[in-house]
């Protein structure tokens, strides 16, 4: 990824951006996020198949935003996240430059976010076969079996909130669980409390989640919480047609159209 390093260097040298967000070699053969502010540090930037962390989660952080204009190394899921964030007024052309990396690992630089949007729209969001199989399996369970499945899966969760920290859409300064006057969602990690937290998270991500799996990858217990959001994504597809994040389009969950299906009322 020599072009990436070269371009990052140029951008920083010309002060076109103040910080380049990318990946660097971490410990234990893992990669981690890198924030390059000096041109000479750009050599630490790497990109390979291990770089799956969704970097879009950093562009809404005040510590990063306050540095000035950002450039971000963006794989397809990251670009999708950025488009969703743009539609929610969290990023714009003035504070973000996207250094896109195509699924063929080629570097493309976009002039503006609407170019990113056009690029992203070439690819449909597809749930992979393995997860699809799992979703089907869960859908076929009886109510009691499904209840048991989720209670079993979610009860080990100790609410470290790594899923929330890893998710680019969880950028709220005050999360619903942090709202404690009153405390609608219980904080202790007991079975029902865990269930409430994960259901609430899935609902808040419906129509916004772009299926990057960052939450699942971040979970220290490898709880398949991404199945919840994937299921919501499927429902969104069934009820509103194929889903693509879009800067200008109306939000799925907050808009009403007279021809919306109302098959949830049964």
């Amino acid at each position: 990824m020599d072009d990436l390093r070269k371009r990052a260097k140029e951008l920083l040298e010309t002060s076109a951006v103040k910080v380049v967000i990318g990946y660097e070699q971490g410990t234990a053969n893992k990669t981690r996020a890198l924030f390059v502010e000096k041109a000479e540090d750009a050599d630490c930037l790497i990109f390979d198949s291990r770089c799956v962390q969704n970097l879009a989660t950093y562009v809404t952080k005040r510590e990063v935003k306050d540095k000035g204009k950002m450039a971000i190394t963006a794989t397809l899921p990251v670009m999708r996240s950025i488009i969703q964030l743009a539609s929610e007024f969290q990023v714009n052309d003035n504070n973000l430059l996207v250094l896109g990396i195509t699924p063929e690992s080629k570097l493309v630089e976009f002039k503006n976010l609407s170019e990113v949007e056009t690029f992203v729209h070439q690819y449909q969001i597809e749930i992979d076969a393995k997860n699809k199989e799992m979703l089907d399996k869960i859908a076929k369970m009886t109510q009691a079996e499904r209840w048991k499945f989720w209670i079993d899966e979610l009860s080990p969760c100790f609410k470290c909130y790594a899923c929330r920290a890893a998710c680019p859409m969880c950028y709220c300064h005050r999360c619903t669980v942090d709202f404690n006057q009153p405390q609608w969602i219980p904080v202790p990690s007991h079975e029902l409390g865990n269930l409430e937290w994960h259901i609430m998270r899935a609902i808040h991500l419906t129509g916004r989640c772009i299926d990057c799996d960052a939450c699942y990858n971040a979970c220290p217990l490898a709880i398949p919480i991404n199945l919840l959001t994937k299921r919501m994504l499927e429902d969104v597809k069934i009820n509103f047609g194929s889903y693509q994040p879009s800067i200008k389009a109306d939000h799925l969950m907050s808009t009403y159209k007279p021809d919306d299906k109302e098959n949830f009322i049964q």
Binding site: E88, F89, Q90, Y171, C172, H173, H251, S254, T255
Partner: peptide
């Protein structure tokens, strides 16, 4: 946080 989802809601 100014996501303005309430505007369309």
């Amino acid at each position: 946080v100014g996501c303005f989802l309430c505007v369309s809601a």
